[in-house]
Design a protein around this nucleic acid. Structure first.
Lengths: 121, 121
DNA sequence: GCTCGATATTGATACATGTCGATATGTGGC
DNA sequence: GCCACATATCGACATGTATCAATATCGAGC
């Protein structure tokens, strides 16, 4: 379990926003593949709950040890899902002592919102 | 192929927006499952291109016969993907003579945008 | 350096999904 | 009713994915 609270900030990676909005112009094959890859990371209830846990945490980051119990899956399964979220750029991780802390990447969520957005938005 | 242009409007179904935004409160298990189901519909490049074709069409609707060639998949495969988009509420279809026309459902896209949105948005 | 706790990786299994060819269903015109 | 065309469904196959138990790896403290 988590000891006291630590420094909140995890450096946010640069998010290269991909792909013009769906409604702005017809998606090319490679843009579609990249967007699909990112949405696939959101297409699992466990990952959505993990992301939600991170995005709503007061500190902005949560110890991996505190993510296992809330989602009710085994530790390897949670680690697997965190890896997929990380590879999709939706979360970042940082080692703090013997623990690893995860944080959501708001810019990545914004990027996906943009892809779903109105053509003139 | 499509003859001339027809009446543009396809009646839009009511969209029940699901699930509080990810960043507003921790997602419950059932909300997470429902959201995951909707994002899964977007987690395929063929479906994203189909949706983009529909969302950018000048008439607001496209004959199914005009969706096969652009995505470069077989007719049954396109039909399969259109069904998934329809069941996710992202597109609507309407019979016009011997053809079936599809249209995007903007409100459904907005609903997903909201789920990805900022807590106070 | 060893041990312990935390996280990641591996291997195995069950299940879902994308794809196509073949076929069914449905519509309009003759 | 029959034929041609458009769309959907079916069956089969290959591939991907979620899950867990077991194991490996990595840090910290002694």
């Amino acid at each position: 379990m988590t000891p006291g609270r630590l420094l909140p900030v995890i450096p946010q990676p640069a998010v290269q926003d991909c792909c013009t909005p769906l409604r702005a112009s017809v998606l090319g094959a490679s843009d579609a593949a990249e967007l699909a890859r990112r949405f696939a990371a959101l297409a699992d209830p466990v990952r959505l709950r993990l992301l939600s846990l991170l995005a709503t945490s007061a500190d902005g980051a949560v110890c991996a040890c505190d993510l296992v119990e809330p989602v009710g899956k085994s530790q390897p399964t949670v680690s697997h899902h965190l890896r997929i979220l990380r590879e999709a750029g939706l979360v970042t991780s940082e080692r703090r002592g013997s623990n690893i802390w995860y944080a959501a990447v708001p810019a990545a969520l914004e990027s996906l919102r943009t892809a779903l957005g109105a053509p003139d938005a």
